[in-house]
């Protein structure tokens, strides 16, 4: 946040971000809204070094989700824009395929490798191999010592702000249902840990055990049936106050299940800012109450600009945080405008 304020005159996109900041200040939860870190996304007016003649490997875990697809395409576009040649592969959420592709990418000896998401224990040994093969490794949403720079939303802030929004919405007391199927994916783990850290100080907020496991694929259908089952187990209104998930495709299924069961008194919370979920947040009658909207396009672009900066000899921070916005029923219009989804 500090960098956004301190650095030079803002133009275009940054004005929009500032609008988001203003909107953020008005919402119920303190500090929510524009999130920035020490190494916040750099200003657009800075000269980005060229990637001419450079082959940049882009490895995506999957592109079946708004966040992945947007970040993936933004990376490819940015490499082309900077004059480089993208070698982009998409593992379609198949870990065996992901590892094979990484192995082949490493053997192709690109000038840099950018890994987008992935289960840490699966991708990390291969990122280490790339590093050992002297290929500069960059990551998006994968925190590992084997990467030179990780471009990500500040997941600590996302996690705590979303948790605070949830706790404040339910009045600091009640049972919540939690999807925790992807604790092996670092950003999901951070968001979950932050939720736990927040509710530690609200002893009347209880996570219903056992926690639910969200799955890929068929995430929406699966979340729908899991929530329908748990609603049958807790038929009394008020016995469940909220449903939390570390991303927003389970939130989509959960929200649909609540509507189908007529239990719209329960609120749902998720992360990523998928357009279909933001649409639900906009609907005043929908149980979708909060969503931490990331900026996948900006994240993808920033990661590639970091590659260009590194290859031009500039120093990079360990992490580059791209602001995220907590969308709720009150500020949804401003958030969608800021994300250019409106």
């Amino acid at each position: 946040m500090s960098e956004n304020r301190d650095s030079g005159p803002a133009i275009g996109r940054r004005n929009l971000l500032k609008a988001g900041l203003a909107a953020g200040a008005t919402i119920a939860v303190a500090n929510a809204g524009l999130l920035g870190g020490a190494g916040s996304a750099a200003a657009a007016e800075e000269e980005i070094p060229s990637l001419k003649g450079k082959r940049i490997a882009i490895s995506a875990t999957g592109t079946d989700h708004h966040f992945d697809l947007t970040a993936y395409n933004a990376q490819i576009d940015e490499v082309k824009k900077l004059g480089g040649e993208p070698i982009a592969v998409d593992a379609q959420r198949n870990d065996t395929k992901l590892v094979s592709q990484l192995q082949t990418l490493i053997a192709q000896r690109p000038d840099a490798l950018v890994q987008l998401l992935g289960t840490l224990t699966v991708v990390d040994p291969w990122l280490k191999r790339a590093k050992d093969a002297k290929i500069p490794v960059f990551t998006i949403d994968v925190g590992t010592p084997n990467s030179l720079n990780n471009t990500t939303s500040d997941n600590w802030r996302i996690g705590s702000d979303l948790a605070l929004q949830l706790v404040s919405d339910i009045g600091g007391a009640g049972n919540i249902v939690v999807f925790n199927g992807f604790y092996g994916v670092v950003p999901c783990a951070i968001r979950y840990d932050q939720l736990k850290a927040v509710i530690k100080y609200y002893p009347d907020v209880k996570i219903i055990e056992p926690e639910l496991r969200d799955v890929i694929p068929n995430t929406v259908q699966d979340a729908f049936s899991q929530i329908t089952a748990i609603l049958n187990k807790y038929p009394e209104k008020g016995s469940i106050k909220a449903i939390w998930s570390a991303w927003d495709i389970p939130q989509l299924g959960a929200t649909q299940a609540l509507v189908a069961a007529g239990r719209t008194e329960i609120s749902t919370y998720g992360v990523d800012g998928s357009p279909e979920v933001l649409q639900l947040v906009r609907d005043p009658n929908s149980p979708a109450a909060g969503n931490a909207a990331q900026q996948p396009e900006e994240i993808g672009r920033t990661a590639i600009r970091n590659v260009a900066r590194y290859l031009a000899g500039q120093k990079l921070p360990r992490e580059t945080y791209v602001p995220a916005l907590i969308a709720n029923k009150k500020n949804i219009e401003e958030v969608t405008k800021t994300l250019r989804l409106g």
Binding site: N94, T96, V99, T121, V122, D124
Partner: peptide, 16 residues
């Protein structure tokens, strides 16, 4: 072989 390749067991084996 799959455990060694993926440094563990992961979901989605059915896709094979």
């Amino acid at each position: 072989l799959s455990v060694s390749y993926l440094s563990g067991s992961t979901t989605g084996a059915g896709e094979m």
